[in-house]
Amino acid sequence: MTRLIVKLPAGCTELPARAYLIRHYGISNSQWKRLKHTGDFRKNGLSANATHTMVQNGDILTFESEKPRNPDAYPIEPQDLPLDIRYEDNFLLAVNKPAGQLVHPLTVEPKGTLANAVLGYYQRRGETHHFHPLHRLDRQTTGLVLIAKEPQIQHMLTKNGEKRFHRFYLAVACGTLPTVEGTIDKPIGRSDGSFIRQEVRAPEDGGKAARTHYCVLATSGGLSLVRLALDTGRTHQIRVHLASLGCPLLGDDLYGTPDARIARQALHAAQLSFRHPITHADCCINAPLPPDMQAIITSSFPFASI
Rank of each mutant, 00 (worst) to 15 (best):
T51Q: 15
T51C: 12
T51R: 15
H52S: 15
T53H: 13
T53L: 13
T53R: 15
T53F: 09
M54H: 13
M54N: 14
M54I: 09
Q56E: 14
Q56L: 09
Q56M: 14
N57K: 12
N57P: 01
N57E: 15
G58E: 15
G58I: 05
D59Y: 13
L61H: 07
L61D: 01
F63S: 04
F63D: 03
F63V: 07
F63W: 10
S65T: 01
S65N: 14
S65H: 15
E66H: 13
E66I: 15
K67Y: 07
P68W: 05
P68G: 12
R69M: 03
R69T: 13
N70A: 07
P71L: 08
D72R: 14
D72S: 13
P75Y: 06
I76N: 01
I76F: 02
P78D: 05
Q79F: 00
Q79S: 11
Q79R: 11
D80R: 13
P82I: 01
L83H: 08
D84F: 06
I85Y: 07
I85K: 11
R86K: 15
Y87Q: 09
Y87P: 08
E88D: 06
D89W: 11
F91K: 02
F91M: 12
F91V: 06
L93F: 09
A94R: 10
V95Q: 02
N96E: 04
K97A: 10
K97V: 03
P98D: 12
P98S: 10
A99N: 09
A99Q: 14
A99K: 11
G100K: 06
V103W: 05
H104F: 10
H104P: 02
H104Q: 13
L106P: 02
T107A: 14
T107I: 07
V108F: 12
E109C: 10
P110F: 11
P110H: 02
G112Y: 09
T113Q: 00
T113S: 13
L114N: 04
A115G: 00
N116K: 04
N116P: 02
A117S: 06
V118T: 00
G120C: 05
Y121N: 00
Y122Q: 08
Y122R: 04
Y122P: 00
Y122F: 15
Q123K: 14
R125D: 03
G126Y: 06
E127F: 01
T128G: 00
T128E: 12
H130M: 08
H130D: 01
F131S: 07
F131C: 06
F131W: 10
H132N: 05
H132D: 03
H132W: 14
H135D: 00
H135Q: 10
H135P: 05
R136Y: 11
R136Q: 03
L137Q: 06
L137Y: 10
L137A: 06
R139I: 12
R139E: 02
R139A: 09
R139F: 09
R139H: 08
T142P: 09
T142N: 08
G143L: 09
L144W: 09
L144T: 05
L144E: 00
V145E: 02
L146R: 05
I147W: 05
A148E: 01
K149W: 06
K149R: 13
K149E: 07
P151Q: 04
P151D: 03
I153E: 09
